[in-house]
Amino acid sequence: MLGGQYDITPEDRIALRESLGLNDPLPVQFAKWVWNVAHLDFGNSFYYQRPVMSLILERVPNSLQISLAALIVTIAVGIPLGILAALRRGTLADHGIRVFSVGGHAIPQFWLGLMFVLTFGVQARWFPIGSMNAVGIDCGLCWDRLWHLMGPVAVISIAGIANLPRLLRTEVLEVISQDYVRTARSKGLKEQAIIAGHVLRNALIPVVTSFGTILLVFFSGSLIIERVFNWPGLGRLTFEAAVNKDYPLVQAGVVISSVLLIVSYILRDVAYAWVDPRIKVR
């Protein structure tokens, strides 16, 4: 935290210990920290000498852009693929989706990210090598931002997309052979209506379960991807804080990811009630 500078006098060292509160007993230090956290005060970053909370709030919108875009892409591509695999069981499409799923699962994200930067960024120059905007452009909602989002979102989505069809395929196949689906068919309902209204809704329950940790997965997933794509988000901030031994910032990062986990569990439970009204608490 002294930036490699060892030109520090013993008096300065004592003053520094005092100002950081390191002379208090550990339980007292911890109680103080918890009390401050309860007031959303994570202290000052050692590295930036600024309040941790303001550093984090600066970065949250940037991270959310990637996470939300990746979530939308994952659902928009993953769910249709899962249904397709089930309905076209045994065909080329089904096998293709299975191979993609296994591949997407097996390849680590950071490697995909690096390969993306190297081939499409540095060599082909189709996509930027990273960052949120090209140098000199500063906009939030524009073609330039979208262009910069494509790489990181594609890489994060691939892992999610690889996961969904496998879950959904098994579940759809099970639901589709149920009596009520046969009844629906015999009523003369259209196939699309049966799939959307009867099959998918019941098949979604395990998918929602798998989304339980999704907020956290997106947060931690972006930790590496944000670094690879030079995206100034929360993940990169936390990663760099860990490298810099910036403890207040790392602590805040851990607290926030814990909160995100709890929030995503709550969201999951709400979503259960939506896909399956039987689960509603009375």
């Binding site: 930067v117 960024g121 540095v122 090598i129 990273g130 140098v135 670094r227 690879v228 990169r236």
Partner: peptide
């Protein structure tokens, strides 16, 4: 003059290669 932040030395080298 713009001082742009990159994740590491490799990212800076990539930016140099692409003319950024």
């Amino acid at each position: 003059l713009i001082v742009k932040v990159y994740a590491d030395a490799t990212a800076v080298k990539n930016a140099l290669m692409t003319g950024e």
